[in-house]
Amino acid sequence: MDPKMDSGMVSTFYSIDEAIESGFAPVPISSDSTVNVQSIIDIMDHLLACEATWHMGHSLAQTVFSCIYVLRPERTSSQALLHSYCRVIRATCRAVVSVVSDARTNEEEDLFTMTYGLPFSGEEDAKGLLLLNAVEETICRQLRACKATRRRMLEDAELEPLQSNPHLEESFCKSLLCRIRFRKHFLHALNCMRRPQGRGLELARKHIGYCISELDSVLDSAEFLRLDIVENGVNEIEESTTASGRSPIGFDPTLNKRLSAPTPPRAIKLLSWKKAIDYYVKLLHNLDQICAFSLEPDLEAVLEFVIKFQKSRPDLVARAHLQLH
C-alpha cells in the first residue's frame, strides 16, 4: 500500500509519549534563558499560523494540536508563560468550535469541527486567562524595570529578568506582551459575542479594537526577532510560520495519526505567519461589523447588511457569528 494512503503508516513517532521521551518538546526548552524566550515566541507565532490554517478548513489535529505543548499542557506547569498561553489557545479553540457547531454554517464533510478524540475539554483550560493575566502583569513589571531609574531598579531588584541579556530585555518584553494581549483579547471578544441578547457586543468591539492594535505591534516586533537570523532570501522569511524565520520546537503534524478517528493522511501546508496575521485582521474587521450592526433593524436593512457583508468574502468563523447574531 502507498504510505500516503494510510494515515497510520508514516509518522515520526509512534505516540506522543514516545515523542516526549525522545526530548522532542523539552521543558524548559533551553537552559539558556534567552534561547528559551526566543523559542516560546516562535511557538506562539507558529500556533497563530496553525490556528489560522485550521480556520481555513483544515484539521485541528494537523494544525493547533500538532503541538505537544498544547496536547500536554500539564507538562509546562513550571513554565508559567508557555503553560498559560497553551491553556488559552485550547480555550479559544473550544470557543470557536462551539460557535461554528451552533451556527451550522459549515458543510458536514468539513474537518473544522472534528476533534478526533483530542483532549479538548480540560477543566484547567478555563483558568488559562487568569494565569495569562498574571504572566502579563509580571512581564509589564519587567518592562517597567527596563525603563526605570536606578532607584526604581533597586526597588525591583528581586524581579527576575526574562532572559540573561539586558540589552535585549525591553524588546523581548514588548514582543511577548503584544502576543499575550492579542491572545487574551481575542478570547474575551469571542466570549462577549456569545452573551445572550447582544449584551456583550459593545465590550466585544473594544476587545476587537485591542486585538487589531496588538497585531500591529506583533508585526513591528518582527524586525527585532530577525536580527540574529542569517536570511537566505526575503521569500523564505515571508513564507515562514514565525516572525523570526526559525523553525518552532515541539510541533509534528503526524503526532495524532493513530487516534481512534484517524486524521487525514496527507500533509497540509500551513499559512505563513504574515498571511495568518492578514487573516486575523480581516476576521476581526468582519466581527467588528457584526457587533456594530443593530439588533433590531428592519428586513430591508438586514438584507442590505448581509449583501454588503458577503462582498468582503468572510470566512467560516465570521459567517458563524453572523448566523448567531
Rank of each mutant, 00 (worst) to 15 (best):
H321F: 15
I229Q: 07
C140V: 05
D125Y: 03
S31K: 12
V10W: 06
F182V: 05
I307N: 10
H46K: 01
I41G: 07
R258T: 09
K257C: 07
Q38E: 11
V64P: 02
Y14H: 14
I180H: 06
A189W: 03
I290C: 13
I249V: 10
L299M: 00
C211K: 06
V317C: 14
D252Q: 05
L159G: 05
I16W: 13
Q38W: 06
L259D: 01
D156K: 10
M56G: 01
K147G: 02
G200R: 03
E136G: 10
G128L: 09
K275S: 13
L162F: 09
D6C: 08
A52G: 11
L324S: 15
T92P: 03
P262R: 11
Y210M: 04
R75Q: 12
D252A: 08
D252W: 05
L129N: 14
F186N: 12
R179Y: 11
D2L: 09
T34M: 07
A145E: 08
E296T: 07
T76Y: 06
S78T: 15
L71S: 02
L159D: 00
S84D: 01
S175Y: 12
G198K: 11
T113S: 13
S77C: 12
I41H: 03
F224D: 04
T115H: 10
H207T: 01
T76P: 01
T138C: 13
W273Q: 02
T138S: 15
D45R: 03
A91C: 07
D102H: 14
T254I: 00
G198Q: 04
R104G: 03
T254M: 09
V96N: 05
T263E: 03
A148T: 04
E18A: 15
A148H: 06
S66E: 04
S217A: 15
P196S: 11
L255E: 02
A267D: 14
S175V: 07
D32C: 02
L227C: 07
T115E: 11
K184V: 11
A222M: 10
R90A: 13
E21N: 08
V230F: 11
W54F: 04
G233I: 00
S240H: 07
I68D: 03
F65I: 01
R144Q: 14
R313Y: 03
